[in-house]
């Protein structure tokens, strides 16, 4: 499991290197008086990615990444909580323009708290709204930033 992930990460970096490298060759070659043009920095970054990606791949294939900070290696994931947090962010993004900023952000608050094991959703909803409202007012009424609202300037 660990090894597959590590190889995957190294492969991702190598792929990124290829994307930036190929992209660099498509950029105009015009260098003007500087002697280096638009493609110079992308090429440097692509080579840098290639180098670190290759080293990472070598580590992954020969016993895994080195020098871990203590306590990072053996962890067991709890996916249910993460699902709640994910749902909170994505739902609030989707509902932002329909239900307004305050409702969306309060929903996010309740979902994240639920993800971390809170069972008092009503209290969380009130806490969330109390937290969000002053910020909403600061943005919309004082700073004139247009945030989506449910029915009027106040909410």
């Amino acid at each position: 499991m660990q090894k597959n992930w590590q190889v995957g990460i190294a492969a991702f970096i190598l792929m990124l290197s290829a994307v930036f490298g190929v992209g660099a060759t498509q950029l105009p070659a015009d260098t003007g008086y500087a002697g280096i043009g638009s493609a110079f920095m992308p090429a440097v970054v692509a080579l840098f990615l290639l180098l670190v990606g290759a080293l990472l791949m070598w580590q992954a294939c020969t016993g895994g990444f080195r020098n871990f900070t203590d306590g990072v290696v053996d962890l067991v994931a709890d996916h249910r909580g993460a699902l709640w947090v994910t749902a909170g962010i994505l739902v609030s993004a989707a509902l932002m323009t329909k239900l307004g900023f305050v409702v969306a952000a309060t929903t996010l608050f309740v979902c994240v708290a639920r993800g971390f094991g809170s069972k008092t959703w009503l209290r969380d909803a009130i806490t969330g709204a109390v937290l969000v409202l002053p910020v909403f007012w600061l943005f919309t009424l004082v700073l004139d930033v247009n945030l989506p609202h449910l029915f009027n300037d106040w909410f």
Binding site: C111, A113, R114, F116, V135
Partner: peptide
Amino acid sequence: IPKPQLYAGILVFASI
């Protein structure tokens, strides 16, 4: 603040 509400608050401020 208990962890659920603390992280909920952090994410709310982040998304704001």
